[in-house]
Amino acid sequence: MEKPIIKLENVWKTYKLGKVDLNAIKGIDLEVFPGSFVTIMGASGSGKSTLLNIIGCLDTPTKGKVFLKNKDISMLSENQLSQLRGKTIGFIFQEFNLLPNLNALENVMLPMVFQGVPLEERKKRAKQLLISMHLGERIFHQPAELSGGERQRVAAARAFANNPELVIADEPTGNLDSTTGKKIMEVLTNFHKERGKTIIVVTHDPNIASYTEEIINIKDGEIIANHKQADKVLWNKQ
């Protein structure tokens, strides 16, 4: 059987709010396999963002284990983790999170800088990506000069820059109108279909979820398993 790209074992995340402990995630087990297109759905406050941060190795669990490509991330140094994350995972955020001081091209090139990709290669790849997102005319524009949809496409290009195996999108359409939102979802779908990459999208919007192949419902920090599967967590929409 194929190995999961990301695997969570009994993961808990507890926040201390004054003297009260708040369990954002309560013992989640989860496996995401290469080549899947997964939605994590849940209302706000359900713990889905926390879960996404842990899946994306941006945050560490209070308890439990996270394996990225079979590596226990708690065993990695912060630098090794940064390196692995930069190479393996691409992020798309609701707020776009482009660096305001850099233009579109530079923003897309940045993840490759951190991976030590040579300048010429970097430029070539970034240009190609932006052109494929129909942003060829915009490559030297600053984020402030771009529309929301354009910014999010730059962000998507950035997420794809290192050709990651996994792309994590946190409410990617949350700040966009439905037409531009649709475009972003198409971009993601294409990336998934053409390159066979794994994509995890967090959303509370069922329309968005409909693009994906699997849906994980989360509520109060737990996965609601309404559809039985081998590992009891995944629920196939068909």
């Binding site: 994306g56 941006l58 912060e78 630098n79 940064s82 390196q83 994350r85 930069g86 190479k87 691409g90 992020f91 955020f93 999170n97 482009l98 660096l99 305001p100 940045l110 993840p111 951190f114 991976q115 950035r158 290192n162």
Partner: peptide, 16 residues
């Protein structure tokens, strides 16, 4: 701070 977070998310090491 936020930019630092972004850079780290997209693979910046502490040294960077």
């Amino acid at each position: 701070t936020k930019e630092i977070g972004i850079m780290k998310a997209i693979g910046a090491k502490n040294s960077a």
